[in-house]
Design a protein around this nucleic acid. Structure first.
Lengths: 256, 256
DNA sequence: CTTTTGTATATCTTTGACAATTTCACAGCC
DNA sequence: GGCTGTGAAATTGTCAAAGATATACAAAAG
């Protein structure tokens, strides 16, 4: 009773003679390997719609939904399992372990002495990367990605109103922008940097959330309107505001 | 010709202390999954007997040596690839990336499909980070650091005149600038990015070295003169030149 | 209620075949 | 000689089908 939860982008499979040439979206991808594409989509889905503990559809079912073979699905799953994202239980099924694809501390930032200063440096790096990335995202985004960003805004606000922690959603939002930009390096970098901020520094404050929600919408609007300069400005403002917050915390701790 | 390099523990060598023939008994006794066992052995072998760059036997050959099927081998390889230990190249073979469990590829960039595009993305990231870092370095450098930069320039030129590879010195030079800036995050990031370029992309060309040496001196002079804007410009020019080189290589490969 | 049994479902493994890609030697040309 | 392209060989990628093995769950037996 597993519904079609995955949007494989490859519907309209009525003709059994031959898959013409994938689909419009596939055609854009320059003939990349099937498994890599499936893995990307799977990763997208895991990061977006899954909670730890969730059970994935069976391999057979996944193979059908992705219009591929069980072997391919198995190899993708093995890869995801090796990355610690899912766990495969023989005879039972495949389960989501974690929805953040980040290793604990790949850059060895944990040994830093002054956590405020580390936070400042991390925000400096973000200020170099993310405004530019946002501009690129505004130019290159797909319609589906724009909708995704908007959804993250809504979900973050919902978590805020509930009083829950929105750190993970925040990371996903910024990672999604990196994904829109098409730059896979930044895409890998953002979650590492951001989770380092939340893990080692813990400088989030509740009064920041309001700003976060508002500015995230601002950024989203700019990207949706394909306005690169606007996106760059909004992202710069967002990060600068947060950096200033930390700067003030440092001063407050040192002066009095 | 690939010899029998793997001791699968499942041969009929007649070692009494060693496990007796258990080609079929593995599953029964150990209860561990076949693929997990093969992966363990493979990992053992990689960590002990392999150097980065080594080519592994073909999947078919491995399947024979481990008394298993190609599918199982493939799944093991997918898992190892996801851990950044090996790289699988379609039509070519499987190659060792790293022999240490410590991540030399913490961002998992090795699995990228198109190495030219990856190089481009890496340079894009450097273009976001390093000009700014250079400007900071120009303001914050110490006298000893300036001398250090100058020494790197000399050493790089010496290597060039000898005809040796100067990749490592190049990485040290840029890392040193990051150190001057005081930002430890960028300092950790630069070597990762730059070694990824030289490891996964291998787009260095001898005619680039001349430009490298000249521009490195330009950058060094600006930092020495405490000229932030000059340092930013020089670094931008340096990276932009290299990025353009790659862009041309991509065009050359696609157009004809 | 507890234990056993049976059944359905899921993953694991094997086998065989073919497609896609890369590599390399070799012939042909300037 | 040096360059080019062409085709065979090697290698990974994908697909399909079948049986083996492990788990989950419900029904039956004690």
């Amino acid at each position: 009773m597993q519904e079609e939860v995955f949007d494989t982008g490859a519907h309209f499979h009525g003709n059994a003679d031959e898959v013409p040439d994938m689909t419009d979206e596939y055609a854009k991808m320059n003939r990349t390997l099937r498994s890599a594409h499936v893995e990307d989509q799977m990763l997208d889905y895991l990061l977006r719609n899954c909670k730890p503990g969730d059970k994935l559809p069976s391999e057979f079912s996944l193979a059908e939904q992705f219009h591929t073979s069980r072997s391919t699905i198995r190899e993708v799953m093995k890869s995801l399992a090796a990355q610690g994202l899912v766990e495969i239980r023989h005879g039972s099924g495949t389960y989501v372990i974690s929805t953040s694809a980040s290793a604990p501390d790949p850059l060895h930032l944990s040994g830093h002495k002054d956590k405020y200063r580390l936070a400042l440096e991390l925000f400096d790096v973000r200020l170099m990367l993310e405004p530019e990335i946002s501009a690129m995202a505004a130019e290159l985004r797909s319609d589906r990605q724009a909708a995704e960003l908007r959804r993250y805004c809504d979900e973050t606000e919902a978590l805020y109103l509930q009083g829950d922690d929105h750190t993970d959603k925040d990371i996903e939002f910024h990672t999604c922008i990196a994904r829109c930009s098409g730059n896979t390096v930044v895409q890998a970098l953002i979650p590492v940097i951001q989770s380092a901020i939340s893990t080692f520094c813990n400088v989030t404050q509740r009064k920041l959330m309001n700003e976060t929600i508002q500015t995230h919408r601002w950024i989203t609007n700019a990207i949706e309107n394909k306005d690169p300069i606007g996106a760059r400005c909004a992202m710069t403002a967002h990060l600068a505001f947060n950096r200033d917050m930390i700067q003030k915390m440092i001063r407050a701790r040192k002066e009095p």
